[in-house]
Structures are given as C-alpha cells and as structure tokens.
Design a protein around this nucleic acid. Sequence first.
DNA 1: CTGTTAGCGCATTCAG
DNA 2: CTGAATGCGCTAACAG
Lengths: 368, 368
Amino acid sequence: MLSDHDRQNKQMKQKYNPDVLNPSPGQTVTMKHVAKEAGVSLGTVSRVVNKHPSVKPHLREQVERAIAKTGWQPNAVAQSMRTSSTKVIGCVLPDTSNPLFGSIAKGAEAMVRKNGYAFLLANSSYDTEHEIELLTFMFQRRVDGLLFAPSDETNPRMIQAIESARMPTVLMEREFPASCDRVVSNQADGLRQAAEHLISLGHRRIALITLQPNILPGRERRRGFEEALTSAGIPIDPILLRPDNLSAGYAYQQMQELMSLEDPPTAIIMGGNMMLAGAIRALNLTNKRVPEDVSIIAVGDTDLAELGSPPITTVRWDLEGLGAEAASILLERIKAKSDPKTAGVKHIVRPTEIVLRKSCAPVKIKSS
Amino acid sequence: MLSDHDRQNKQMKQKYNPDVLNPSPGQTVTMKHVAKEAGVSLGTVSRVVNKHPSVKPHLREQVERAIAKTGWQPNAVAQSMRTSSTKVIGCVLPDTSNPLFGSIAKGAEAMVRKNGYAFLLANSSYDTEHEIELLTFMFQRRVDGLLFAPSDETNPRMIQAIESARMPTVLMEREFPASCDRVVSNQADGLRQAAEHLISLGHRRIALITLQPNILPGRERRRGFEEALTSAGIPIDPILLRPDNLSAGYAYQQMQELMSLEDPPTAIIMGGNMMLAGAIRALNLTNKRVPEDVSIIAVGDTDLAELGSPPITTVRWDLEGLGAEAASILLERIKAKSDPKTAGVKHIVRPTEIVLRKSCAPVKIKSS
DNA sequence: CTGTTAGCGCATTCAG
DNA sequence: CTGAATGCGCTAACAG
C-alpha cells in the first residue's frame, strides 16, 4: 500500500515539480514516478532504460523526457536483487600501500570499470584469518567475481575457504592446488636472468634474500636462482639463502648478517620490492659501496632503484597489465558463465625482464 | 534474459524442494531454507541473525544449527534493498598508484572496513568528466557515503555535480565553496617551514615548482611559500614560480629551465610528491650537485627522498591518518544522519612537518 | 515471544 | 507493442 507515499508524491509534484533540478531532499525517485510522469507503465520505462528495441519512438521519447524531468537514476541495488548480478568485482590484496599491489589494483580497477563493473577493494594486512573473513564478506555482498592474492597458499583453512567460496575467482601472483584461474609473472625466469648476469660478471658467492616459500613468487624466485647457479656449476651455499620474509626490515637485518659473514657474498639479490630500502639502510651503516664492495640486484622496479645512486639493476614486469589481464579473464568467465572445473583452468604466465643499471660490477679477485 | 533460469528454478523447487538439507550446488540457500530446516518462521531466523534479544534460547540454538547445516550466508543485496542502506562507502581518487593517494585510500579503507562497511574504489585519472560519471555511478549503487578528491575544484560542472549528488560526502585535501566536510593537511604551514628553513640558510633566490591553483594544495603551498618570503622581506620573483602541474615530467622540465636561468635559484622546493623523481633526472643531466650547487626540498616523503643520495629534506604528513579521519567523519555523519548544511560543516586541518636531511646547505656567497 | 505479511525498486514474464 | 502482475531475499511491523 503505497497510498500515503503516492499521495505525498502527487502533492510534491504539484507543488515543486516545476523545479525538477532540485528534487526535494529525502524523496527518492523511482521508476514508478517516471512511469506516472510519462503516462506509461513501469514495464515501458524499464524497456526504454534497457534499450529494448520494441518501444514506439514517441513513447520512448516521452519516457526519456520524464527521466530527465524527475532526475531519476536507476537503483543498482534493486537491479542486482532482480537480476542476481551485482556487477561488482571484489579484490582482496595483502596491502595496497605496497606499490606492487597498488599497481596491480590500479590495473585491475581500470579494466573492471571499463566493463561497467564496480571495484570493491579490501586489504588483508597479510593475515590469513582476515582474508577468510573478507572472502565471506565478498560472498555476502554477492560480488560477481573475485580477484585474489592470498598471503599464504599453504594454510589449510585458506584452501578450505577458497574451495567453498562459490564465486568465480582468479588468483594473482599466486596458485592453489585446486583448479583456479591465475595470472602470474615469470619470477623464476627473472631470477634466472639476474643470477646469470651476476655469474657472467664472475660472481660465485651470490646471496638471495627473498620471501617465504608459502607463496608462489617465493618458491619461483628461489627455483630460478638455484637453477641458474646449478647450470653454472656453482654449489648452493645454504647460508647465502634467506627466504623468509618480504619486509624492508627483514632485508635490513639479513643484509647485515650476510655482510658480516667470514666469507661474505660478493653479490646479493633482493627478492622483494620493499627490500631495497632495507638493504640500502644496512649498506649505509656498514660503509659498503655498491658496486665496488658488493653487487646488488633488486626484484621489483621502483623510483628508488632507478634514481638512487648508484641506480640499481632490477627485475621488472608489468604490474598494471597483470591486474588488467586477471580482471579480463575473470570478466570473461563471468560473461561466459564458464567454470574452470569443467571448461579448463587458465594459467597465464607473463614475462619478466632485467633492467641493467650500475649496481653490478665484475667480481674482484680475492687476495688469498 | 532470465527466463530459463526462472523456469529452471521453479522446476527445481517442485522437484527437489523436499530435500532442503542438501541445497544442490548452484541452488542459492536463503533464509527460507534455514527456517524450514530449523522448523521456525522467517521472522525468527531474521531475529536471531540480527541479534534481537527476544528469542527463546532453544529456538536460537536451533536456528544457529540450521544456519551451520545449510551453510546459509545473508544476502547483503537483499538486506540493502530492504533497509535502503548499502553499508558501502565509495571513494573517488585521481590515481591510487600515486603513493600519496594510495596511502590515503589505504587508511580510509581500513577505517571503513573496521566499521563493517565495504570500500568501493574508483580512479578518475585526473579527469573531471570521468569524475562526474563516477559520481553518478556511486549514486546509482546507493553508496551510503562518499570520500572524494576531485581533480579540479573550480570546474563549474564539477561544482554542479557535487551539489546535486545526494550522498553524504567528505572531501580529502580539497575544498568546495559549497558546505562540505573536509579533512586536509596544512600545506601552507609545511611550505612556510620549508621556505623558512631555506631562508635561515641564507637563500634568497628560492624557486617553487608546484601544482596548479585549481586544487587546494596548489593554492596553499604557494600561499605558505609567499608568506614566508614576504615575512623575511624577500621580494617574490615570478620567474621562480612554476605552479602548473603535479607530474614528474613537469618538474623535470621546469627544473631544467630554472637551472639555465641567467640568475638561477640557489634553492628549489618541489611542491608535489611525484616531482622529486623528475628533479633528480634533470639534475643528473646537468651535473648539478645537491646541496653544493643547489638546495632541494621535496613536499611528500618517499623512499627515494629518504634513501637517495643525498637524502632529501621533505615536508611530510600522515596520509593514512588523513584517509582514516575522513572516513571517520563520514561514518559519523551517516550514523547520526546529520547534514553539514544544518549541523555545521566540519573542516579538519592536520599538521605537516619538515624532515631535515642533507639536501640543503647554506647559500654560497656569490662572487660578484 | 513468534508467525505472518507487506513491500524495498526493478526486470521479466504473460496477456491482451 | 504495451500494461499488469510476479517475485528476487530480506526486515519490520503487526497480530496473535
């Protein structure tokens, strides 16, 4: 029974409607108002809005005038309710203030928006429990799909959560044993290039500070690194491997430890984009010069790497493109209503490249 | 075209509905299923979900078991439809890949999430027309509130759009003539500190490269800068003022122009966080040394400023805190349903501080 | 205290 | 081609 409501409406219209630009505050305009204003039925309004071909031109025009006059805007919530499609893509990332994730998010958001979807973003702060909450949060909001980079692929609760999350999802820079689309960059190859470059400069004691193996880039970076060394016939010294964390603080501390070894590395690869800052702090402290005393390569390109002194050789890849491609694949899945479990999983691997700068030098002959 | 879907649904119900316990996959579980499972009515389920106090414990428990058994999750879309509150905060920013906006977004998102709201993010790419579209987009999705940093406060279409956007909004680092809550950092004071520091070092030819005056920080930075000079009795040389753009490219180009002046500045303030990169590129090109040949201060603290050589003196402020405070104010407004127009506008100004590093030196006596 | 019921705003049948 | 009617899933009266 909308009678009171309607009556009030009518009054308002009589009183204020001339001033359409200023729909009185608090009064929400619905399709019904438009229909009344245009002298047609709800269905007709809906049809012109959704560009259904079979509407007589003069009615269409009447409706359009009514829309303009009332200032009506479709209510996306009601549309979602009716169509059971929200046209929103959720995105759960560890930390968008890390420029790496920030850029991925930006690329994804742009693609998502371009296709008329909304972009619901949430940071998990590298916390699996929080991520699980966010997954149900996204599900309750009935996002049409999910872009996701979990913080720990091996956590059984995480695996369980993603299995039972009934939303199309594509992983970014991550993988799950379960069939799930993903787009990742080729970190193994990047690290291989980095290590080979150092090896070609004569280095044999090369250290790697990198992230833990519970996420794909952690494993792949180490794998590429070890493969390069092995191919060159260089034995892998476990003491030079520091694969535990992606923070600047960790790099700072490991850097100091490495440099105070009896037989320190002559080159170090920082396998994480936040690590360079920590490394530089440690180097400044110990008065080691780059590249005279130690050669450095950073994974993940930044202003600091490009413009610091010396400029740092890095491994880089297209972050925004990665986010955009992940979004594309998700959007396709949604459009085609195809399920990876039946239609085949998509695994995209995107290239990485090495950017040579001035932080690497030929190894010095040891005076022994 | 949901017809197939609908029909299928109806069939499913006729055929399979007895088996409520086992919502076949693809079958969405609703409160109705839970109610049936628990042997209670819809209303009761709703009450236990919304923690209404008056539900007999044993019924409550029954319902909770039924929820667990069916795996039901509330449908936020339906809730929104019913309560006409989406529990989502929209956020429109020029470019979240700029760490400045990225950090603001992160702070805002955290606060928004902490209060049980979702965070709908969109980048406008510094484009007013795009921003206007985004505003209607956010409105159509019926966000409960909006966090906004327009790219041009003076565009009449923008002003019109924000006036007629019927959502509670709080501006970040921006202002509008219209009554609108805002939280900003004290850029005038930051620039005053920066200029005074340079003046105390004996500089009198100080240049400012900064953003255009159509956004608040552009105006405020220039104002603080000019006030400091005027207080010190230093005349303002228009040729040393470059207030047009916030990009690294702009800084690069203006930097080159400034350094090739017949009477070049002895100190330069980069009034934008992206500018330092451009400035360093220009400096590298011309072989000018910092601070021997020219002193530098950057507005906006970054890794590059902290860890480059030399480390750069900067003006900094709490970005995440700013985003969080803006979100807080918005959330309060929403909770209290208070309108700035009647309840008084909130204008928060947050402090900025100068971080002294090694990029500024006393001016050299000119050999004349 | 609990069951029943009426819509929220819209898209989509189904008749005419 | 158009109008009327239905219901998406849920909350909030309203009765009982």
